[in-house]
Design a protein around this nucleic acid. Structure first.
Lengths: 216, 216
DNA sequence: ATAATAAGTTAGAGAAGGCTAACAAATTAT
DNA sequence: ATAATTTGTTAGCCTTCTCTAACTTATTAT
């Protein structure tokens, strides 16, 4: 069995490799807010346990075993988020930190019960896919909103970041998943977009925001 | 903030002192399955943090602060058990180990939401009182069933032990909370009791079992 | 009252996971 | 091509929580 700390490394490794491809010790260090020497030594340990492939000075890759373990934790995290929103009535901006703790609970029965109560959902409240019990992930490939162009009409499907601050910002803009957005203009200089959706006739979003919106 | 490990010591200290009065290092050691020298050194640490009163070779007592912290964890544990049974549909025999993990979650909002969804329950699925948010405990004082005598008719109100094994035994005997039990006879030699309840005309319970049944 | 047993403490060690300081390798910029 | 910068590693140390071995105090039994 992997420790809570190991689980956090595996999860970070998985999500970083989905975001960037290759994952360096430095990326992990920044994501986990743990100093590089500590990360290096953990990589040695995880390599020893055959959860990662690691050679010094080279990027780190999850092994098949490591990937399986990571997906299992991500499943627990996302099921928990869904449960917190759908069953307990939390807002999508409140659930990340709680799920971050509950994902480490050791009890297949607990998460299977959540899954059952929720009717085996495929996506969490932030639009991220929930792996099934065998680790299969419904592979929706979304586009970054920031890469869309003037005149396009797209549907907001997921966020690339579940921090409370960002989600509260979206709440304040009345923007929720499944909303259809039309791009009125894109400022070439800094990527700022002017858009319309729902009853908002004209809202302006910076590139920082648009980068975190995933659409189809 | 207290660590998960400290929380477990505080909780054990609280429940043991409710069961026995004085709590010795040895009692804690047995309950937590941690060797005595480790317990001794943790007592020093908790005394340093003013969570317990401790002098060497003497029994340990929780300080007011320590008691408050312990009650807070017990509240989280019992709310969780109630939630698992009432909202998620688990059996009373399945919830202890899961609650043991979830009780350490740091999120007042999470437990307050449970409390609200459950309608501020006063007792958990095992009949133990759930402290309210201010630490007040509905102080029902139950009798040990094993101390009752022939001819008495009592009501089963709580169990003194929530282990899966014991609760599965009670399930197999069709015995659940609120059941009225009549004592047909008590064997003076070993305290074995012959009883009747529900549709069971004659069941025999050893003292080991009767000690764990709390009645009124 | 003293011997035997149980309970408690001290000392020292170890695993896990974190850190800083110093150095080495790799990458980027000139 | 070399210098500067960034990234990664090694070495050594710290804290938390655990242990065993050896010793001391307290309790129980004769």
């Amino acid at each position: 069995m992997n420790s809570l700390v190991e689980e956090n490394y595996l999860k970070a490794l998985f999500t970083l490799s989905n975001e960037h491809g290759e994952v360096n010790v430095n990326d992990l260090s920044k994501r986990l807010e743990i100093k590089m020497p500590t990360v290096t030594s953990m990589m040695k340990k995880l390599a020893e346990k055959e959860l990662v492939h690691y050679e010094k000075y080279r990027p780190v890759r999850l092994s098949e075993m490591g990937k399986k373990a990571a997906i299992h934790i991500i499943r627990k995290h996302r099921l928990t988020e869904m449960f917190l929103v759908e069953v307990m009535g939390f807002g999508w901006e409140e659930v990340h930190d709680i799920a971050e703790q509950i994902e480490h609970v050791k009890s297949p029965a607990f998460f299977n019960k959540m899954d059952e109560i929720l009717g085996h959902p495929s996506f969490d409240p932030h639009g991220s896919p929930i792996p099934d019990i065998n680790g299969n992930i419904q592979g929706e490939q979304y586009r970054k909103f920031s890469e869309c162009t003037k005149g396009e009409k797209v549907k907001f499907m997921a966020v690339a970041n579940s921090s409370e601050k960002f989600l509260k910002f979206l709440n304040s803009k009345g923007l929720s998943l499944e909303t259809k957005i039309e791009i009125l203009s894109v400022e070439p200089f800094d990527g700022t977009m002017t858009v319309t959706y729902g009853d908002r006739t004209s809202e302006v979003f910076s590139k920082v925001v648009c980068d975190k919106l995933l659409v189809v």
